[in-house]
Design a protein around this nucleic acid. Structure first.
Lengths: 217, 217
DNA sequence: CATAAAACAGGCAGTAATGCTGGTTTTATT
DNA sequence: AATAAAACCAGCATTACTGCCTGTTTTATG
């Protein structure tokens, strides 16, 4: 439960303790820029992520921004790293926090619930915008797809570490993992049209199906 | 199986037999413009749907385009109607075509398979782009959300008509319907990262779960 | 303390998209 | 055939975004 795989992928924006003050200051503004970019993404989608907006939100001049991120796409690439990392970290923090003194039979339900919570955060909203935009933007896909596959492997590694009870049934675990991730994404997108009641019914259904995958060998 | 509800919602673009030739010509160019707009949507996402691109693809001048669709958003609104209608029509055509001589127990599997096929068409790709863009675009959402809710009701009506066998279990049917739609959407978005093999496993899983909803009362 | 380098600021040209306007051709009406 | 209306065309002004460029301040180094 050490999140070893994930820890190795921490992006430069979230560095722990930089040596020089100047580097620290630089890292701080970079982080602020990336954070503002995520806000833009959440509020205006991928087309709403403009350098002007980011500069205006952070108070950083466009010139300074050009120093940290020469082109708009450099900023987008940094956002991608940040979003993948944070999305996974927030899920793991939530899941591991609620794990104390849990029965083995509850683990799947706890993980499913934690994932549904994680899906409602702004990091996931930004991730979704990027994922959809990458479908129709070759340049973006060139950075997004490799990152997605990288984190998919990390995610599986973490799951194997967190679910030692199903050591001999990793294939089943992977299928359940894929299923929950895809289903929650779809539910999130359908939520505005079906409303809260049917959304809740669907999440319950997903949890039930995920459980059934483990219950039946 | 008459698609009565759906037939009542056919957009003006797809009118059957207009009276005057001029109106027919007008409807034809309108349809061409909407069709080109869908191509833009599929290839470049919502930001790629520009009036210039549409005019260039169709060969229609921007001035003529302004005559049919005074503003860009008028075109988008027409696209929304078209996409909702076509997405549902293509699914129903496919499903009803494969229905001849089918066992009652196969219906759920047939419907699920037909829906997964429909999800891979360009109409659905356009729908997805609009759905995601509407999340961060209030003006777009103002047209998209009502249309989505309208077609959600039509969809349910058609399902009730197509599945008379579960007359007394409409709630179960609705839940299965919601589940398959959401799950397929999520699978489609996850497909580029998980690959074809895991995608196929997921669709099989969805079909199995949908079936189980009916099998167990 | 002097000098280099890093971080920051503001502004300018190029590009592309939108909405609109004046003018032209084609079709319908009487 | 004459007139009105619908469909079509080309171009202009505005807006907004990107990329880059020249300076200025702050921090590190010898």
């Amino acid at each position: 439960m050490q999140k070893r795989m994930l820890a190795a992928m921490r992006p430069a924006d979230l560095a722990a303790q930089p040596a020089r003050w100047q580097q620290q200051k630089s890292a701080r503004t970079r982080a602020r820029l990336v954070d503002a970019a995520i806000d833009c993404l959440v509020e205006g989608g991928y087309p709403g992520l403009t350098t002007q907006q980011v500069a205006e939100r952070t108070g950083v001049s466009r010139g300074a921004m050009h120093h940290h991120f020469p082109t708009r796409f450099d900023l987008v690439a940094a956002v991608i790293e940040h979003v993948f990392y944070q999305r996974m970290r927030l899920f793991l923090d939530d899941y591991l926090a609620g794990l104390a003194g849990a029965e083995e039979s509850e683990l799947v339900a706890l993980a499913t619930a934690a994932h549904w919570r994680s899906v409602q955060g702004r990091e996931y909203a930004a991730y979704l915008e990027l994922a959809v935009a990458a479908r129709t933007n070759a340049e973006l896909d060139g950075v997004f797809a490799p990152a997605a596959r990288r984190y998919d492997e990390v995610w599986i590694s973490e799951m194997i570490e967190s679910f030692p009870y199903w050591r001999e049934r990793w294939e089943t675990m992977k299928r359940a993992h894929d299923f929950v991730i895809a289903a929650h994404m779809g539910i999130l997108l359908q939520r505005p049209v079906v409303g809260e009641e049917r959304t809740a019914q669907m999440t319950d259904l997903i949890a039930h199906f995920a459980q059934s995958l483990y219950a039946i060998p």
